[in-house]
Amino acid sequence: MAEESNKALLLSVDCPFAKIPDQLLIEIIIRVPIVEWGQLSCVNKYWANLFREDCLWHAALLRCFPFAGQGKRWPGPIPRGMSKRRFAALYMSKCIFPVEDELSEIVGHTFLFLKEQLEISTMPPPSGILHGTIIDQFIACGKSRDQAHELASLVWLAVIDNLEDNHQTFLLLKRLALEGDEFLSYPYTRSSEVAWKIFERIFTDFRDCLHHADYYDLLASAKQKFQPIPATWLGY
C-alpha cells in the first residue's frame, strides 16, 4: 500500500520514471555502475523501497554474477542469506579476495559475518569463537585444515584492513591485540600475519589514541609475539 501511494505521488507530479513498469525500472537501475546505487536509492521513497526488495537484488545478482544462480547451498554455521546478502558477499569477494569461483561466495559471506560480528558495539563474541566458526565453515565445505587456516587468515586480514578509522575500531584492535589464542590447537589459532596486521594498525593508524599505559601494555604483548619489533612501532 505504501509503495502504491509513493508511486501515485510521483505520477501526480508528472515524473516520467513513475510511468515505467517496475521490472523495466529495475533493469535500468542494475545497468548503472554499482558505485552510484547509493545515490539512486536516495532519489525518492519509491526507489528507496525498490532497493529494499528482493526482486531488485535477485536481478542484480543474475546480471553481475550470472553463475551465482547455479550455486548450491553449503553446509556449515554461516548461512547463505537472501539475494541482497549474496550480492554483497560476491561483490566483496570480487573486490578483495583472489579466490576461485567455487569459493568466492563462501569467502564473501565469511568476510561479512566476521566484520559484522567484530563491529557489534556491546558484548561482541570472543575472537576465538569467531575464528573457530570460520575454520569450521571452510572444513565443512571440504577444505583441508591447511586450506581452512589459509582462507581464514585471508578473511581476517581483509576485515582488519577494511575497518573504519574510529574509536570503536581502536578499542576492538586493542582487545584483539591483548587476546591470546596460543593455547588453541592448529588450525584454530590465528596466523602470525593476522596478529602482525592488528599491531601494525594500532601502532600506525591509532598511535594518537594510545595512552601511556596502553602503549607499554601493547608493546609488551607485541614483543612476546614478534622479534624484532619494527622501528615504526617504537617511540611513544
Rank of each mutant, 00 (worst) to 15 (best):
H149V: 04
L118G: 02
A8F: 08
L163H: 09
L25D: 02
V35N: 13
K7Y: 05
L56D: 01
L178F: 02
A8K: 12
S93T: 03
F51H: 05
V32L: 06
L9F: 12
L151D: 01
E200R: 09
R175F: 05
P98R: 12
G81L: 08
S93F: 06
T169E: 07
K84D: 11
E36M: 09
L171N: 12
D214W: 04
Q137V: 07
R80Y: 09
A220C: 11
K45P: 03
A222C: 07
I96D: 01
G76T: 06
G69P: 00
P230L: 06
H149M: 08
T133M: 12
L218G: 05
F170I: 06
W233L: 06
D165I: 12
L154F: 07
N44A: 06
R201Q: 10
C64E: 14
G180Y: 00
Y216C: 00
F111D: 06
G71H: 10
L154Y: 04
H167W: 11
I202P: 00
E179N: 11
L163T: 07
K174P: 02
W233I: 03
M82Q: 15
L154P: 00
P33M: 05
V43I: 15
D214F: 05
Q147P: 04
Y186L: 05
R175T: 14
I129K: 11
S93G: 15
T204S: 13
I30K: 01
I26R: 00
P125G: 02
I134Y: 04
L50N: 03
S121V: 14
A89G: 07
P79K: 08
L173T: 04
I96R: 10
K7D: 02
Q70C: 10
V107P: 06
G180F: 05
L172F: 05
G38K: 10
L157D: 02
P75S: 10
A213G: 08
D161H: 10
G69Q: 14
A48N: 15
M1D: 13
P125V: 04
W156G: 03
L210S: 05
A88I: 11
L11V: 08
F65D: 03
S5A: 14
A148Y: 06
G180R: 10
K115C: 08
N162V: 06
F183G: 01
L40Y: 01
T189N: 12
L118I: 09
E36H: 15
S191W: 01
A152F: 04
P79E: 08
R175L: 11
L163G: 03
F65S: 03
G128Y: 03
D136K: 11
A48Q: 15
K19Y: 12
G38Y: 08
Y236F: 15
L130A: 03
I96N: 07
A18Q: 01
P77D: 07
F51C: 00
I202M: 03
L154T: 12
L173I: 08
I28H: 00
E3G: 00
R190S: 06
T204L: 13
K174C: 12
T232E: 14
A177V: 08
W156Y: 13
V13L: 11
Y215F: 15
P230V: 07
F183W: 13
S192G: 08
V99K: 04
F111Y: 15
A195R: 09
W196A: 06
P33F: 01
L171Q: 11
A152D: 03
D165C: 12
P228D: 01
Q147S: 13
F65W: 06
S83C: 13
P75D: 07
A8R: 13
Q224H: 10
A140Q: 08
